[in-house]
Each structure stands twice: as structure tokens, then as C-alpha cells.
Design a protein around this nucleic acid. Structure first.
Length: 584
RNA sequence: GUCCUCGUAGUUAAAUGGAUAUAACUACUCCGUCCUAAGGAGUAAUUGUAGGUUCGAUUCCUGCCGAGGACACCA
């Protein structure tokens, strides 16, 4: 439709002997102003000079007259001049009925676009480290990554989900040191307690190990941890190997349990130990060209490549004076490995917290010097930190709030709300999980990815207004309307419309554009904001209309609208990585 | 100190350079209801600061103030 309007404007301008290269057609801010709008009159009024052409408003009037003369499109009902010189287009009853019919026909495919068809994209996200807790940051990265992956798929891309994890290094040594202080370790290792609980203990051991390492009164601990660290690399100590193998398995399996709950399935798992060697090779092969020695270490002096108007780069160490690879070098190796695994990849996306922005820029610069063809194929997306508003959560258990505990506590609160339902336990548990995850994910995805998120535990589970459960609730409600229509035997009918055009219709047809924009900008919050608007509109429609009503000739159309809404909501929620239960 | 990311109602957030800056939470008023009240209909309140570019700036540019982050052998 946008295209047709653009053409109509171009033709009208041509008849008036005005040439404009780029005509902007957009949706007005307010639905009352119409469905499409253009600012051409304001743009060209300046370039052709005010007198004798008159002001933008006068010019807009002339253009509208010409448009009306040319228009044969039945979808355009009304065209008018408004405000400072905007030209607003109102679409017809017919157009909206058609769009409802289209949505009914597309079902779960609603909102798809082909802007990325044929593209192979790898998205790396979550990245929790074995032996360390799954913290809130991982939860954020996971929610954002999963959503972006889904949105890109809905735009036609073939997406691979990847996870990158630090399986070696000082953090592992600290955890193993902490574990080895535990006299009951042997029993724990042979027990079959659930992974998440075991992983929790390993996380605590890591914290203890870190504290011991920092503790100046305990110099022995530091020495011992450093020794364990080398033993992890050379696998010389059977005891360390045993604890390592056990801890690695337990924490990785616990992560899998969480991914299952969160709805993520990774195709690629990259481990630091695997990619480190590749990174070291890349550094050694580019000595003199890209890297140089400095104070015994190997560094990349990125400031040499600073350009006016671009973010400033700085020097970073790639190999320590002991010859060990730093994180930068591993990142280098990781990217090489990704392209080796998928040689025809068009884009490699990495999602991390924004504290890694500056150094990722340096690494990206080094990479694009080594492989110029990678330069346009790497994309780093960053997100802010999650700040917990109230301290209530942490006091509950007397320890740090991890991503895992946040998930569990949220689900527990949803369970409270579901207590009164006369469902069986299994159904209650399933719905509590899905709703709890929705509350968390939505509060992460409703805002643009750049900034920090203030997570208010109490608010997120109040489920009112701007929340994930509100969206799910609207869906469940529509579902129950559909069930009633089936009981009463009224079929959805996109042709049985009356005169009134409902607000919900003016929103539903925009879904594909929203998906396309979210995909282009890698911003899930456009979907979240759109869904809230649609849900609010449907709830208002629901509140003010009796949808299933045998007395009403247009009931079939209202039911068709309900189906359309439910398709859009279900698919939209899916793009946020949120499931839509039919009852709640 | 240098650089990066930010700064919008009391709070949390929206707004491809456009129209009267939009929602939610909170507070207050109303709707016991039918298809799920985890709902609906209302009322009140906002662009850190000083300039600049523009027909038009929350958006772009510069200075200042404020928050967080990164800056050499951690990840």
C-alpha cells in the first residue's frame, strides 16, 4: 500500500511539473490523522521558493487536488491536508477487511518478510562460563539474542545460534580450589543430586576461591590457585582432572536445563580452549603487520588507525609477556573458527554487555586488517546492565541473585497466583513457568537494547499494563472467545463487516513492517511496543463489544478479527522468545 | 585525564528530523460483566543545561552539568 501511495504522489507531482527523488510516506503519530502521511509539500516548498508557489499548506492543497483527480484505488478513501502541510491518506473499509483476510490466510507465517532471504547468519549469545554461576547478565543476553535470532529468521534468514564459553583460565582454577576445600566433595561428586543444585554449589565454590585469591592474609591460596591453573592446561594432576571433568559436566548440563526453560537451542558450542590456539597462530602470522612487541608482550596499537569521526581505538595486549593468549586473542580465534565452520556465512553477530564495546572495536579492527573480507560481516550488539531495584530478592536467600534464582523466584510467584485455579498440578506448573519466563523476558525486551534496565521484581510480577503476562493474558482471552464462537457455531468471516472500522484493524496490518524494522535495526523492543499497543486495542475492543453474538450480523467479522489478533499475538510473542498459553 | 554509552512525568520506559511528546506503574473517579476483572472508561504530571543547524529538534552539532562503563599483560 505504501508503494501505491508513493506512486500516486509521484504521478501527481509529475503533472504539476515538480520532481522529487525521495518521497517519504509514513504512518502518522496518531491514528486519527489517517493511515499514511507524507511531508513532500513541506520539503519541496522550500526548494522551489515560497512566492509565487505559496506556502507548504497551499502547495499541499494543489497536490491533493491532483491526487484526487488521478486516484482510482478503491483502498484510498480520503485524502486531506493537515497541520503545517502534511498530506494524510485514510484507507477504506475494504482495505482493512482485505488485510484481515490476508492474516487469516497466513496463520503462523503472519508478519514474515523476505528482506534477508538467502542470508546465513550466526548469532552468538548467552556465553555463561562453566564453573561460574549463570548470572543476570547471561539472562539478558539470552533474552535479547534469542529474540534477535527469531526476528532475523522471520525476515527470511537462515540463523545459527552459537554459545561461546570459557572452559579454561583463572576462574576455573578458583572454582576448583574452592571445591577442593570441601571435605565432603567426594560424596557430592558421586551423588546424583540435580544439576542445578550442584551447579549452585560450584558457583559458591568459585566465589570462595575468588575471595581466597584476593585475600592478602592467605598468600598460600593464591599460589595454589595459580598451580591449579597450570595443571588444568597440562592435565598433569589426576585429582584436578577428576574435579574438572565432574564440574564441567555438571555446570554445562545445568545450563542446558536453563536453556530448555528459556527456549533456546544452540547449534554451535565454542570453547575458549578450542579457539585459543587459532588465535595465537593468527597473532604470530601477523607479527609486524598488525601486532608488535612492547614491554615483552605482544600488542595491537589500534590508535594508529584512528579516523576523524569514528570511535577512538586504543592499544590492547594480545599475548602476555609469558606468551599466554588474552581474551582478545581468543576472540580472534573464535571468529576464525566461526568462518571456518560456516564459510558462506554472510554475517556473524555477537551479543554482549556494553562494557565490552571498546575492546570489541579494537579486536574487530585487528580482524579486519587480517581478513579484510570479514570487516563488513561482523556485527557487535551490546546491551546495558540489569540493576535490581529492590533488595528483597537477595535477602530472601541471603546470597547473590543469580539468573537462575531470579527465574525460580519469578516462577514461584506466578505459582502463588495460580493456586486458586482448578487445573491439575502439571498444567499449573507448565503455565507458571511460561508466564514467569514471559515476565522476565518482556521486562528485558520492552526497551531498546543499549541502556541499562532497572528490574523491579515486584512490578514485573504484578502483570499489569506493560508486561509479558498482559500480552499472554490477551492471547488467552482471545482464545477463549474463539472457543465460544466454536461452541455457538459462528464461523470467522472476513466479508461480514459492518461500517465501523475498529482501531485494532488499523494496527494489525502493520505487523510485517514492524518485524522488518526490528530486523533491520536489531531491536526487539519495536515488536514488544507494537504488541502492547495491539493487545491494548484488542482488550478495549473486547471490553466494549460483544464479539460472539448470534443476534449480530457482523459477529463473523468480529470473530475473524479475533483470529487475526491471536495469530499476530502468538507469532509476535514467539519473536520475543515467549510462549503463548491458551489458558492462564 | 582521554574515550565510550546515556540523561524524557514522582517512577520505569516510547517517539525512521515532523503534527497536541506516547504508554505503563503510582494516586484519584467510574464499570460486579456478559466471551477469562492478570480487564475496560476517565483525571493529573515530563524533554538535565546553554547555544547552533533547520520551515520544523527529544532526535543532528558544540560547550557545561550529572550517571554508568572502558582505558597494558583479567575475562
Amino acid at each position: 500500500m505504501k508503494h501505491e501511495i508513493q506512486k500516486l504522489i509521484t504521478d501527481a507531482l509529475l503533472n504539476l511539473n515538480i520532481e522529487v527523488s525521495d518521497i517519504v510516506v509514513e504512518h502518522p503519530t496518531d491514528l486519527k490523522m489517517g493511515d499514511y502521511s507524507t511531508n513532500v509539500a513541506m520539503v519541496i516548498a522550500k526548494s522551489i521558493g515560497h512566492p509565487p508557489a505559496g506556502g507548504p499548506k497551499e502547495l499541499a492543497g494543489k497536490i491533493v487536488t491532483e491526487i484526487l483527480r488521478l486516484n482510482t484505488d478503491k483502498n484510498i478513501e480520503h485524502v486531506e491536508v493537515a497541520g503545517a502541510g502534511f498530506i494524510n491518506f485514510h484507507l477504506s473499509r475494504n482495505f482493512f477487511a482485505h488485510s484481515v483476510e490476508d492474516i487469516l490466510n497466513s496463520g503462523a507465517d503472519v508478519g514474515k518478510n523476505d528482506s534477508l532471504s538467502g542470508q546465513k547468519i550466526m548469532v552468538e549469545y548467552t556465553d555463561p562460563n562453566p564453573f561460574k554461576p549463570f548470572h543476570i547478565g547471561h539472562l539478558m543476553t539470552n533474552a535479547i539474542g534469542e529474540s534477535i535470532a527469531g526476528i532475523l529468521e522471520h525476515s527470511g534468514a537462515s540463523v545459527s545460534r552459537a554459545n561461546y564459553q570459557g572452559d579454561v583460565g583463572p576462574h576455573v582454577a578458583k572454582a576448583i580450589y574452592g571445591l577442593m576445600q570441601d571435605k565432603k566433595l567426594q560424596d557430592k561428586m558421586s551423588s546424583h543430586a540435580n544439576n542445578i543444585k550442584q551447579a549452585g554449589n560450584i558457583g559458591k565454590a568459585y566465589v570462595e576461591g575468588s575471595e581466597a585469591y584476593e585475600n592478602e592474609n592467605n598468600p598460600l591460596a593464591k599460589k595454589e590457585i595459580d598451580e591449579i591453573n597450570t595443571k588444568i592446561y597440562d592435565k598433569s594432576d589426576p585429582k584436578v582432572n577428576e574435579v574438572y571433568d565432574w564440574g564441567f559436566k555438571v555446570t554445562m548440563e545445568a545450563f542446558e536445563d536453563l536453556y530448555k526453560l528459556l527456549g533456546t537451542k544452540f547449534e554451535f558450542y565454542f570453547l575458549e580452549s578450542m579457539v585459543a590456539i587459532l588465535g595465537i597462530e593468527a597473532v604470530k602470522n601477523n607479527m609486524g603487520e598488525v601486532f608488535e612487541e612492547s614491554d615483552g608482550a605482544v600488542v595491537f596499537k589500534a590508535e594508529k588507525y584512528n579516523k576523524e569521526g569514528q570511535p577512538k581505538l586504543h592499544t590492547r595486549v594480545f599475548l602476555t609477556s609469558k606468551g599466554l593468549p588474552t581474551y582478545e586473542t581468543k576472540e580472534l580465534g573464535l571468529t576464525e573458527e566461526k568462518f571456518a565452520r560456516m564459510p558462506d556465512m554472510n554475517l556473524s553477530i555477537v551479543i554482549t554487555a556494553n562494557e565490552q564495546m571498546d575492546y570489541m572495536r579494537v579486536v574487530a579492527k585487528a580482524l579486519s586488517l587480517i581478513h579484510p573480507k570479514y570487516e563488513s560481516k561482523m556485527k557487535h550488539i551490546t546491551h546495558g546492565m540489569m540493576r535490581l531495584a529492590a533488595g528483597k530478592m537477595s535477602s530472601r536467600k541471603g546470597n547473590v541473585v543469580t539468573g537462575e534464582s531470579l527465574i525460580r523466584d519469578t516462577i514461584a510467584l506466578v505459582s502463588e497466583k495460580l493456586k486458586e485455579r482448578d487445573w491439575d498440578e502439571e498444567q499449573k506448573n507448565k503455565v507458571a513457568e511460561v508466564v514467569g519466563i514471559a515476565a522476565l523476558k518482556y521486562s528485558i525486551l520492552k526497551q531498546s537494547t543499549g541502556g541499562d534496565i532497572a528490574y523491579d521484581f515486584e512490578k514485573s510480577i504484578s502483570f499489569e499494563g506493560d508486561s509479558g503476562p498482559y500480552l499472554q493474558y490477551s492471547y488467552a482471552r482471545a482464545n477463549s472467545v474463539i472457543e465460544k464462537s466454536q461452541r455457538e457455531n459462528i464461523l470467522p468471516d472476513p466479508h461480514a463487516f459492518g461500517e465501523e472500522i475498529f482501531e485494532i484493524e488499523k494496527l494489525l496490518y502493520k505487523f510485517p513492517e514492524v518485524v522488518e524494522r526490528a530486523s533491520r535495526e536489531y531491536e526487539p523492543h519495536y515488536i514488544a511496543n507494537y504488541l502492547i499497543e495491539v493487545a491494548r486495542s484488542y482488550n478495549s475492543f473486547y471490553g466494549n463489544t460483544i464479539i460472539v453474538n448470534k443476534e449480530d450480523k457482523t459477529s463473523g467479522y468480529k470473530i475473524a478479527l479475533t483470529y487475526s489478533f491471536s495469530f499476530v499475538m502468538k507469532t509476535g510473542l514467539h519473536l520475543l522468545g515467549i510462549q503463548a498459553p491458551t489458558k492462564m
